[in-house]
Every structure is written in C-alpha cells, then in structure tokens.
Design a binder for these strands. Structure first.
Lengths: 217, 217
DNA sequence: AATACATCTTGACGGCGTTCAGATAGGTGC
DNA sequence: GCACCTATCTGAACGCCGTCAAGATGTATT
C-alpha cells in the first residue's frame, strides 16, 4: 500500500520541524483524502497523518475541524465558480447560457461528489450559505441571477428575479443530489447521453424551459 | 437535568432483564434524540442510553448503526407518504394537487429537518433511494408521477413522465434543503406568508408552473 | 427438571476530536 | 554572536464513539 507521492509523511528527509505552510498543506491533504476515500474518511487525525504532522498540529492553524472543512469548502465554491463562468462564456444566447450554468453545476457535483457534500455540510451547520455566494460577482448564485435578470429584461421585478433564481438554484441542487443516488441509465440511453439527460430535466423545469422558450422564439 | 419521561433508563423499577420490544424502543429513542438534539447527537451509545440498555444491546436487533438508521429513515418516508396523501386529497384540481404535494413535501422537511437528513443520508451511503419509493402506490414519488400522468393526459409518453417526475422531485428536494439554509424572510414578507413563498418558488418551476397553467386554463 | 436459545451486560479494542504541558525553531533587539 | 520571544509542532492524556467477544440472565422447549 503506497501512499500519495505528495504525502509528506514518508519522504526520507522527514521534514523540517516547522512545516512552512501547514495550513495550505492541510487543506490539500484533506482534498486528497476526500477525493480518494470519501467524506467518511475525512477525520482530522487522518488529515494530519496525510500531511505528515501530529494530530494536534492542525490546531495551530484552525480553531477546530469545522474550520478546516470550511477552508476546503471555500475552495470548492471557487472551483465551481470557475467552472460555471467558463460554461456560461461558451454559449451565446441567454437561454443556452442559463442551461449551461445548470448543467455545469450538476456536472461539478458529480465529478466531485465528496467535495460537493462538504460544501453543503459546512453551510448546514451554520444554517446559512456562505456570504460570498450572494455577493461575489462570479459566484454561482450571482451568475444565475444575472442571466435571469437579462432574460427577464424590464418586466421582471426584484422579487420575481430572486424567486426565479432561488427556484433555479433549488432545481440544480436537487438534481445534483439525485444523480448521486440514481444513475438514470434508462433515461440517459433513450436521450442519447449524459448531458442530454441533464438538459432534459432542466427543460422540464420552468426557469429553464420557460426561459429557453422565450429566448429562442 | 431530567430526561424524557418515556426514557426507560430512570424508572425506579429498573426494567425486566429482557426488554420486550427493544428494536421498537430503539427506533423511538433514536427519533426522540433526533428531534431534540439533531443528527450529530445520534450516536448508537446515546440511543442505547436513552432506551435504558447497554451500548451492546442494539447489536442483537440491528447489524450495525446504519441498520438502525435505516429503520428510522423508513419511518420517516412513511410519515412523508401520509402527509402527502392528505395534502393531495384536500385539493380538487390536478394543478392544485401537484402544488400541494410539493408544498407538503417541503413543509415536512422543515418540520422534521433532522429526520429528513437521516432519510437522505441513509440513501446516500447505499447510493440508491429506497425501493418502495418507486413502487409503493402511496410513496411520494409515485404520487407525484400519478398526478403528472393525469395532468399530461394522453400526449405525454413514458419518458417524459419520468423526466417530469424526476424534475419535480429535484425541485422539491432542492427547495427542502434550501429552506434549511436560508430563511427567505424578505421574500416571505412580500409574498404574505410561508406557504405563499413555497407556492411562489414552485410556480417558477416548470412542472408546477406549467402544469398549473395547463390545468387552470 | 434439564436443556437450548434469545437477549442483555461487562469489559475491551482501536479510532475519533480536543486540550495542555513541554520541545523546537525562526525572528528580533542587543 | 547571543539571548530572548513567539510561533509552531510533539506527546500524552481525556472522554467519546462503533464494535466485538465472553459471560450472565432470563424464556421456551422438551
């Protein structure tokens, strides 16, 4: 059983007493464990082991385990932002942009299921989604809201925009969780592929279907 | 610190050596802890304590902790089924029935957030939703599918029905999770109440908005 | 009454998150 | 170059957890 090459634990030169940038190393170790063995394997002690330090070392950089997970989750949201920004830029019409945002969101969740779980688990404990989600311009929420605002043009009032964005968010998150439970293989086959399936579901959801219709006609 | 009155641990007559129906008592103890202190307080040892037995006793009735949680989750799904059946029966038009199913789903999730979490956490570990969900006639999924089938009438093919049901499910689950993160107080105020808010979001979601329009016109 | 069986307890194991006293090293002023 | 301060890391400990094996205690069967 050989561990990761980036694992500082079993290099021969055993590491200087002071690590240098342990908080960074811890977050990366956590991400590695998460991708390899899932959320249940993500104990603070395991992270410390993976980073090659004692179980107590993380406490000089994070208040507790939750704060480390917060850092991991934060990275996750940033990755998601990048992903959605790219997907949005690839499309030309507003309807396509909106669908692309939704599809890329779900694809991210499926490619990084453990990370996606941590992102929401952290929010659950604080009973609130991260602030930057509703503020940073490139945040997933703001991007969706922007496109919806543009699609709606003048007629949509503030309340409707927030409602519609919330609805879209719920739909995307719901679908992201569902694809972790079910494979939907029969549907995928009939629709000819994975992305077609995702588009199919989104088309059945008002924000997307409705908007697409409006944008395309 | 006085514990629950149903707690068998501190009755004076300390309990017969053989409990009688421990598996039932354990599930109920688990539910009590869940409602009172949330999912994080739900350790096997705590459940055993609450039921007034030793930490090892549960292993004569459940293979491991997961199997106990499965039993709790199963009860949760049944409660949800009842809730949705009632909500559906209260309405007359198909559109109203569909919206009522969605609203009652989300309300259940908010009233029993810890139980709702356990229901999905159990599914996550097995990477599949419980079978009865797609089979039992009164299951949440089947109820939604039935109404959608009726609304669609003849024109909807099998694939579209499953897609639409999946979409509705995702939307409801997504919203159910969102209300655990955000209070949406500003929106609720503007819309005049909690249920109005939920209806508002669902109206923005295709299955519901679209269906309502079709059913009402 | 004797025997088999189900059920519950006791005690133990390793792993967890967390804390605290003490070891180690880099940085600062002399 | 040296002493000191502070940040960082270690080691050992605490109480909790899930789980298991061995033994105690009732119930059921014969």
């Amino acid at each position: 059983m050989v561990t990761s090459m980036t694992d500082a634990a079993n290099t021969n030169e055993p590491r200087p007493y002071h690590h240098g940038d342990l908080s960074r190393a811890l977050v990366e170790a956590a991400r590695r464990l998460l991708e390899q063995d899932g959320p249940s394997a993500l104990s603070l002690r395991a992270v410390a082991r993976e980073a090659g330090v004692s179980p107590a070392a993380p406490y000089h950089h994070f208040k507790d385990k939750g704060e480390l997970l917060d850092a991991v989750a934060h990275e996750g949201w940033e990755m998601l932002n990048v992903r959605m920004t790219e997907a949005r830029a690839r499309e030309t019409t507003l309807g396509d942009k909106l669908t692309a945002l939704g599809v890329s969101y779900v694809q991210f969740a499926r490619e990084h299921p453990a990370l996606y779980r941590v992102m929401y688990d952290c929010s659950r404990e604080k009973a609130t989604l991260p602030e930057h989600l509703h503020e940073a311009d490139d945040s997933a929420y703001c991007q969706v809201r922007d496109v919806i605002t543009e699609v709606g043009g003048g007629p949509m009032n503030e309340l409707d925009i927030e409602l519609a964005t919330t609805a879209a968010w719920c739909a995307a998150h719901g679908l992201a969780e569902m694809v972790a439970f079910k494979q939907f293989d029969p549907m995928k086959e009939q629709l000819g592929g994975d992305e077609a399936f995702l588009r199919g579901v989104f088309t059945h959801l008002g924000i997307f279907g409705h908007m697409n219709a409006r944008a395309l006609t």
